[in-house]
């Protein structure tokens, strides 16, 4: 079932054309990535989705025009409030929805273990490592129980090792929860590791230059054969992004 459906979405800031007609679909339980060079307008697209900006084109959700509260949004970096304890950061979205703080805490507290944050409920965000902060931010995002997650380069600010660990962790989490998710990233490996499908954007003004299915079984970090296939897909996407003549890339998994 198609949940999010964008058709020819455009956005310009004055004479600067940022999005030149983006069309994409996200189906229920699907993990989709938008991959593009820095400054391509990926974040602008999210701002259109969350309603922070107005653009042209059709944005529909479950067949109806997109209205307010469909998405739980996880911004770049973590946007944890340093003046709230970790648990109160996690409850923020629920409190905004009108839930009492105590009830929101009771809802969130049991999830801390699964997010690797057990024992840190009363800690300040400044006391957490980068990876833990991202997990707290993701916890704050998913407890809102919205229809779909919007993840805006969630691991972009992490060091390479922590990022790799977080990507594996997120893949595991996604496998058990099957959130419908749209991820923005410029990290090709991240997109291939996490996604069912990838939309590759051009540089500004952004349009979809390629749609790549990633039909690899999960978890994807286990076998060498999977890693080879993933690498082939990565190479093909990189060629598209860097404007090289594309080498033959299988759209379907090769059997080794």
């Amino acid at each position: 079932m198609t949940r999010l459906e964008l058709r020819d979405v455009r956005k310009s800031f004055g004479a600067l054309e940022v999005l030149a007609g983006i069309s994409l679909d996200v189906r229920a339980g699907e993990f989709v990535s938008i991959l593009g060079p820095s400054g391509a307008g990926k974040s602008t697209l999210f701002q259109l989705l969350t309603g922070a900006l107005k653009g042209e084109g059709s944005m529909r959700f479950d067949g109806a025009p997109l209205d307010g509260a469909r998405f739980a949004f996880m911004p770049q970096r973590d946007a944890l409030m340093p003046w709230r304890r970790v648990i109160d950061n996690a409850t923020l979205g629920l409190e905004v929805q009108g839930m009492k703080r105590r009830a929101a805490r009771e809802r969130v507290a049991p999830l801390f273990a699964e997010f690797g944050l057990a024992g840190f409920e009363r800690a300040w965000p400044a006391e957490l490592s980068g990876g833990m902060r991202q997990r707290a931010a993701l916890l704050r995002t998913v407890v809102q129980q919205r229809d779909m997650l919007l993840l805006d380069e969630p691991f972009g600010a992490l060091d390479a090792l922590t990022r790799a660990a977080m990507q594996r962790w997120l893949e595991g989490m996604w496998q058990s929860h099957r959130w419908t998710a749209l991820l923005i990233t410029h990290d090709v490996r991240e997109a291939v590791l996490l996604s069912d499908r990838i939309y590759v954007l051009s540089a500004r003004p952004a349009r979809v230059v390629r749609e790549v299915a990633v039909p690899l079984p999960r978890p994807r970090t286990e076998s060498a054969a999977l890693a080879r296939e993933a690498a082939a897909i990565e190479a093909g996407i990189l060629d598209t992004l860097l404007g090289q003549p594309p080498i033959r890339v299988p759209d379907h998994p090769m059997e080794n």
Partner: peptide, 21 residues
């Protein structure tokens, strides 16, 4: 009023950053 200001100058380590997949 700002108890978080003195928190985390050293940053606690992440015991299981990679262990959960």
């Amino acid at each position: 009023a700002m108890p978080w200001e003195n928190a985390g100058s050293e940053g606690k380590s992440d015991p299981d950053a990679g262990g959960r997949a």
